[in-house]
Design a protein around this nucleic acid. Structure first.
Length: 793
DNA sequence: GAGTTTGAAACT
DNA sequence: CAGTTTCAAACTC
């Protein structure tokens, strides 16, 4: 924090470098602050460190993760376009890979740097070549006038314009950027030379370079380009101020200092609850900057989406959202991911190479960004967990959002509420990283993961959405009391559990308790991260699925998500099933009902009247149904156990299903995601297909151990066990991925229920033979297996 | 807002 | 694995 420290890099006084002709030359060339800015950035780390505490909060992590995802998605593009730039930059920082080792803070700083880079690009004389961009860019520059204040408002305007042209102009934009990059390259080259002379500084630069690389990669994408413009503007504010003001180095540093905070802006907000980070310093600027940062982050996400092809809608909406979100985002950074994932899903379903590219890009970026853990794991993982919680909570909002989902506004709404924890702790990170490695195997897998995240996040919401709406007004009141956010966010009222047990909704959702919570003696806070993690591990050791989303959805593919998502909801079901005796599964006491899913075979409920569907199924004759026969068999058994009103149920079930499909289930997209992921892993052996996905994933789940250990599969197994009869296919898939050896615990929490006599085993083959006969009763919900079966001819 | 009901989670 | 207790949400008044 102290200026003196900043002034020196690696013990060498900055002044030395500043005095160097190279430095001057660079400064003269680049409108933006050159090396110095780098130093400042570097120094930012020190500033950031205090902020790092923010990251400890899962929320913050999530955001960051989302960013990384974006990066990843963009990265490939960046490779092509920015690669050249990267080379130069790489020269500056040869240790980019090492950058991974950088603290989270550094990562953030890098992001900031990246912004700067983009600015440089933008600021560079736009090539005349780009007819389209120039119009847009110049505007942005005008806005750039520099004050952070300008950043926000003007920025929107610019962005909007840009977005309009996006579809047409991407290529041109790219050229433009490239041109800018070329100039920049020359600068960099000079810098690199200089650096050679000044090794110490070079180190610093390395860090910066890493950022640059990331930035470049991000910016590289066409969508990024737009963003880059925006970003540039956003960033410019501070930067230009620095440059224009020609403030002393310290001032510059200070101004940049704010940047880190800004970059964290969202995080900070998220963290706001938790930890008072050291933001106090420059609140005014931070607010603005935070704004811009969020916007940037949002833009990045948008960019990803754009890449998918939904650019227009998403961007416009997203931009607006970004600002709106500012206040809102506290926890659920993941939502953005989810939103993205949805789009990815759509793109996947609809498409085309683009999606693949994205996935590839993401993967590549991940690979590139050895930075790692940071980048990828978080990206992928985070979304999942959070969503679960958020889903449930956010579901209310969903009705509104569904359209939004398509448009991309979802993203906005999503982020608001529940915030999740990201893998906050280093431990989590490590895990996440490990996961990355495991996951990395295939790009597709990655996509799937992301999708899952998205789906998961969404799914819960959907499932709950209607229910939530249905929820007693009191709840709404309570939530409303807390504020708009609160509705989406989970909040607990724990008194004895210290919020370290699954009793606590927040904890169960993998989210830290926040302001809205009225818990007592809460340990579920970033401050007690270690405790939380330890407790989590304990619980997971007992029940690996404890933090898994309770509602599992069979996702056939991303398609459901995108188009049919609304219709397919039926596929969702509760992981373990309920055990209701008095509520008739018509109240939120029932987890199935609460999750917006119908009861399934796994349920032990008595007098089930679940409006979303009952165990009993309808007679289905379709091929799918035949496949479902497997489920049915279970159902039949189930029915035997619980004879409800079959006839009525049929009608009700169908209606309900439609219902769910439209309203609730549509939410469940999340569920689909998960399975896809798992499948993806297995995919090598088998083509991806629908599988059972937990609707709401707690951020923790994915982020944490499951991925790392590749335990994910185990979960499936567990789920399988739970759902035993129902999910034949998924088990197979799971099997592929997770050999029994992995078998985390066969003792799933469900075990009680699961053990089922129903099928006893879920022997697929045998069943299939008998399917046709059994068809009578079909679970109201499309069994997970059914979906899977579809995939398998 | 307090009290009751409910069912999951945790414990034995 | 079953039964019991604990817990906090959901619900009612």
């Amino acid at each position: 924090m102290d200026t003196p420290e900043r002034s020196k890099i690696g013990g060498t006084p900055l002044s030395k470098f500043e005095d160097s002709p190279v430095f001057n030359f660079i400064n003269s060339l680049s409108p933006i602050q050159p090396v110095k800015s780098v130093d400042s950035i570097h120094t930012e780390q020190s500033y950031l460190q205090p902020v790092s505490s923010i990251f400890t909060s899962p929320h913050a992590n999530l955001q960051r993760e989302s960013r990384f995802l974006i990066r990843n998605s963009l990265s490939e593009f960046s490779k092509d376009e920015s690669s050249s730039d990267n080379v130069n930059e790489s020269n500056l920082c040869t240790g980019v890979q090492n950058a991974v080792s950088l603290s989270r803070c550094t990562v953030i700083a890098q992001e900031n740097c990246s912004v700067i880079c983009s600015l440089n690009e933008a600021t560079v004389d736009p090539p005349d070549e780009c007819s389209i961009l120039p119009s847009n860019l110049p505007q942005s520059e005008q806005h750039d006038s520099g004050s952070p204040d300008h950043n926000t408002a003007p920025w929107y305007d610019i962005k909007m314009d840009v977005t309009l042209d996006i579809d047409r102009a991407p290529v041109e934009l790219v050229h433009f950027v490239q041109n800018g990059l070329d100039k920049r390259k020359s600068l960099l080259a000079s810098e690199s030379e200089f650096l050679e002379n000044y090794p110490l500084e070079q180190n610093k630069d390395e860090a910066v370079g890493c950022d640059w690389v990331n930035l470049i990669s991000d910016n590289a994408d066409v969508p990024l380009i737009f963003d880059s413009n925006n970003e540039s503007e956003v960033c410019r504010g501070p930067i230009e101020e620095l440059g224009d003001s020609s403030k002393p180095a310290q001032d510059l540093d200070n101004s940049q200092k704010t940047q880190p905070d800004e970059s964290f802006g969202p995080c900070v907000q998220n963290a706001a609850q938790d930890p008072p980070v050291n933001h106090s310093a420059e609140n005014g600027k931070e607010d603005e900057t935070a704004h811009t940062l969020q916007i940037l982050s949002g833009t990045c996400q948008n960019q990803v989406l754009l890449s998918n092809g939904t650019s227009d809608q998403i961007q416009s909406g997203h931009k607006v959202e970004s600002q709106q979100q500012r206040g809102i985002r506290r926890r659920c950074l993941v939502f953005d991911m989810a939103g993205i994932s949805k789009k990815n899903l759509q793109s996947n379903s609809n498409q085309h190479s683009s999606s693949s590219l994205l996935s590839n890009e993401k993967m590549a970026s991940d690979d590139k960004c050895s930075t790692p853990g940071t980048s990828q794991a978080p990206c992928v993982l985070p979304g999942i967990g959070l969503h679960l919680n958020t889903l449930a909570t956010t579901s209310k909002e969903r009705p509104v959002t569904q359209e939004m989902l398509a448009s991309g506004k979802e993203l906005i709404s999503m982020p608001c509420p529940v915030g999740p924890f990201g893998p906050t702790t280093s431990g989590w990170k490590g895990k996440s990283l490990a996961v990355e490695k495991d996951v990395s195997p295939t790009e597709n897998e990655v996509q799937n993961l992301q999708i899952m995240h998205n789906d998961a996040s969404q799914a819960p919401a959907l499932g709950n959405g209607e229910e939530l709406n249905q929820v007693s007004p009191k709840k709404k009141r309570r939530k409303s009391e807390h504020g708009g956010e609160s509705e989406a966010c989970k909040r607990c009222n724990c008194k004895k559990s210290k919020c370290l047990k699954l009793y606590c909704e927040c904890f169960a959702a993998g989210v830290y308790c926040s302001e809205p919570c009225s818990c007592q003696g809460c340990f579920n806070k970033p401050i007690h991260e270690e405790t939380v993690l330890a407790t989590r591990k304990q619980i997971e050791s007992r029940n690996p699925l404890a933090f898994a989303p309770k509602v599992i959805r069979t996702s056939e593919t991303g398609q459901e998500m995108g188009e049919d998502a609304n219709k397919t909801p039926a596929s969702a079901r509760h992981k373990r099933g309920c055990n209701c005796k008095k509520s008739s599964c018509l109240k939120k006491y029932c987890e199935c009902y609460q999750g917006g899913v119908g009861c399934s075979i796994s349920c032990r409920c008595e007098g089930c009247k679940n409006a979303f569907g009952r165990k009993e199924g309808i007679v289905l004759i379709g091929a799918e149904e035949i496949e479902q026969g497997e489920h049915e068999t279970d159902h039949c058994e189930r029915e035997k156990d619980k004879p409800d009103d079959d006839g009525q149920q049929h009608a009700t079930v169908q209606i309900d299903e439609n219902h769910s499909s439209e309203g609730l289930l549509s939410v469940t997209p999340l569920q689909t995601c998960r399975p896809s992921v798992k499948l993806s892993f297995c995919s090598s052996a088998k083509p991806p297909r629908s599988s059972t996905l937990p609707v709401g994933f707690s951020p923790w789940l994915y982020t944490s151990q499951h991925f790392q250990k590749s335990e994910i599969l185990p979960q499936h197994k567990l789920e399988k066990h739970v759902n035993t009869a129902l999910e034949d296919d998924t088990p197979d898939v799971l099997r592929c991925d997770a050999p029994p050896s992995n078998g985390v615990k066969t003792t799933s929490p469900n075990r009680k229920r699961v053990s089922p006599p129903h099928n006893g085993i879920g022997l697929l083959p045998s069943r299939k033979g008998g399917r046709k006969v059994i068809l009578k009763s079909i679970p109201s919900f499309p069994s997970l297996t059914g979906d899977a079966s579809e995939d398998y001819p």
